[in-house]
Design a protein around this nucleic acid. Structure first.
Length: 302
RNA sequence: GGUCGAGUAGCUCAGUCGGCAGAGCAUACGCCUGAAAAGCGUAGGGUCACCGGAUCGACGCCGGUCUCGACCA
């Protein structure tokens, strides 16, 4: 057993390849996929999920833990993730987290106290937000929990509704459940981040999207949509799936859908990068050509 | 060759009667503890195709030039 490792970076940065290469060199390594979309069974091509062969060679966790008709949330993911980490530690093995979903990764490296849900209260608040506007709810939150109100934009309906839901539902201020995401205490993880020049990463993304289409992504999406239950609210947000569903419904051409996937995936990669780069605990590797060759030495310098 | 239309931000386009140049998207930057591949905010960006004219003042009016498109020959 040794210090758990984290390889993080934007989509298409090569972090999965790095993880596989490391695991091959270090028996006893188990990979934990920290990815909000690879959790769904059958969403394989579009999420660039590790192949069956890769999964047979190195143990993987948190893949295929849910049906695409189910909603996976932060709490459910965090619970499964903490269990996986505990298992790996019990076996005396080394966990290697491969992270693309910033908030989910955070819930594993910096365990959070998650407040709970009050669905009835929430739908009431959502109705009020629609009727009165989110600013009114934000003002109410500011009166009850000024710290939480200061952390979010008044126009961000989802976050304001959630904070009020928790504050009213639990009887405790939303902000009392944690210090906020801008606190980065020391944690027992070694984190290495992959950083690409944006134009290069954009090119990799475009190439990968086209490869996914050639590999049969359209058929994969059609199959998932036809299954009983289809795609849940959360699964339906997956890049590639969302746009191809539009195409399959006849609302745009395949070429338009592909162009949108490329654009949104690029924007997503930037958002991931902006999220991760705030974390001062991450050791960054500026990639030039070959992620595996350039990141492995950094990962091994422990 | 002729007629008509178009030319304004990286892209698609608004711009009223001549009075400080606009939107959406893109881009950059930032926020967000149960939707996070989601949600939200801020900012930068202009030779108004070009040349000349009338006017206190032109993206707008007048004359000419160029480019693109449609139609006619």
């Amino acid at each position: 057993m040794s210090t758990p490792l984290v390889v993080l970076g934007p989509t298409a940065s090569g972090k999965s390849d790095v993880a596989m290469a490391y695991a091959r060199l270090h028996p006893g390594t188990e990979i934990v996929a920290v990815d909000a979309m690879q959790v769904y069974r059958g969403m394989d091509i579009g999420t660039a999920k590790p192949t069956a062969a890769e999964q047979a060679e190195v143990p993987h966790h948190l893949l295929d833990i849910a049906d695409p008709a189910e909603e996976v949330t932060l709490a459910r993911f965090a619970e499964a993730g903490q269990a996986a980490l505990a298992d790996i530690e019990r076996r005396g093995h080394t966990a290697l987290l491969v992270g693309g979903t910033g908030l989910y990764l955070r819930a594993l490296t910096d365990p959070m106290e998650l407040p709970g849900q009050w669905p009835a209260l929430r739908s009431e608040l959502e109705a009020r937000a629609a009727a009165e506007g989110p600013a009114a709810l934000h003002a109410e939150l500011a009166a009850l929990d000024p710290a939480a109100a200061a952390r979010m934009e008044p126009s961000n309906t989802r976050r304001v509704v959630r904070a009020l839901e928790v504050t009213l539902g639990s009887g405790r201020p939303f902000s009392s459940f944690g210090p906020g995401l801008d606190q980065y205490p020391p944690v027992p993880f070694r984190m290495v981040g992959l950083r690409w020049p944006r134009p290069l990463l954009a090119q990799r993304i475009e190439e990968r999207v086209h490869r996914m289409i050639e590999a049969g992504l359209v058929a994969e999406v059609a199959r998932l949509l036809a299954a009983p239950g289809g795609l849940s609210r959360t699964a339906a947000q997956a890049l590639g799936y969302k746009e191809l569903a539009e195409h399959l419904a006849g609302r745009c051409t395949l070429a338009e859908a592909v162009a949108t996937i490329v654009l949104r995936t690029r924007q997503f990669a930037v958002r991931q990068d902006r999220w991760f780069r705030r974390d001062p605990r991450v050791a960054w590797v500026a990639i030039e050509h070959d992620p595996v060759a350039e990141v492995l030495p950094v990962l091994e310098a422990s």
